[in-house]
């Protein structure tokens, strides 16, 4: 039983893909959008998060959809070019969206009080004032615990990346160099494209 769960956490796509993964992924996307909206935690790209000037719910929803569809599209086009298997768009869409579920946990980081204080720092103020604000923040009880939690949230981004890798491997049946190259294109190239498109929303 334990082994099954560990196997699922390491590669859920051996068990679920297609419509099932898409349904769970959509649920994760909706929850993530609402959490991000509540905490003003914007997705600037696939790997970049933080505050942004547009507080509208549609903007958060659009960010989530862009961050899902751009890497999925890159994976699909790459899969068509590199894979010898007959790949299905629904598998790529479903597994890519499911792979982003761990990002839900990074959204929770935005509930930490220090995150809001950091976001509130005004770069227009003098350096001395900003330093004074940061010093006051560091002096608060629980600050270092919050910093540690922020590092834990990075683990969830890594987990998302690992699941994206597995999503590509299973949905496109790629191996070795082809898999590595297309994954890097989808993740890092996708991040750059997402940042450009999302930048147009602000």
């Amino acid at each position: 039983m334990k082994k099954n769960w560990l196997g699922f956490l390491l590669n859920p796509f051996e068990r679920i893909a297609g419509g099932t993964a898409l349904a769970w992924g959509t649920l994760g996307l909706l929850l993530s959008t609402l959490l991000a909206w509540q905490t003003d935690y914007h997705y600037h790209g696939l790997l970049h998060f933080g505050p942004a000037p547009n507080p509208a719910l549609w903007c958060f929803a659009a960010e989530h959809v862009i961050v899902w569809l751009i890497p999925a599209l890159l994976f699909y086009l790459g899969g068509l070019a590199l894979s010898r298997s007959r790949i299905r768009p629904i598998d790529i869409l479903g597994t890519t969206l499911f792979a982003q579920i761990p990002l839900l946990f990074t959204n929770l980081m935005a509930f930490l009080p220090f995150y809001k204080q950091m976001s509130a720092l005004d770069p227009a103020t003098s350096l001395e004032e900003q330093l004074a604000q940061v010093t006051a923040m560091v002096a608060q009880p629980g600050f270092w615990f919050s910093v540690w939690l922020a590092f834990v949230s990075i683990a969830f981004v890594v987990w998302m990346g690992y699941w994206m890798f597995k999503a590509l491997q299973v949905s496109c049946n790629l191996k070795e160099v082809k898999l590595g190259v297309l994954f890097c294109v989808g993740l890092f190239g996708g991040d750059i494209i997402c940042r450009f498109i999302i930048g147009l929303l602000y």
Binding site: F13, R15, I16, A17, A21, R84, R88, D91, V170, S171
Partner: peptide, 14 residues
Amino acid sequence: RGISYPTVRNLLDD
């Protein structure tokens, strides 16, 4: 087999 469709298809392709 309790596995996903693309996993079976990948096994067949391999």
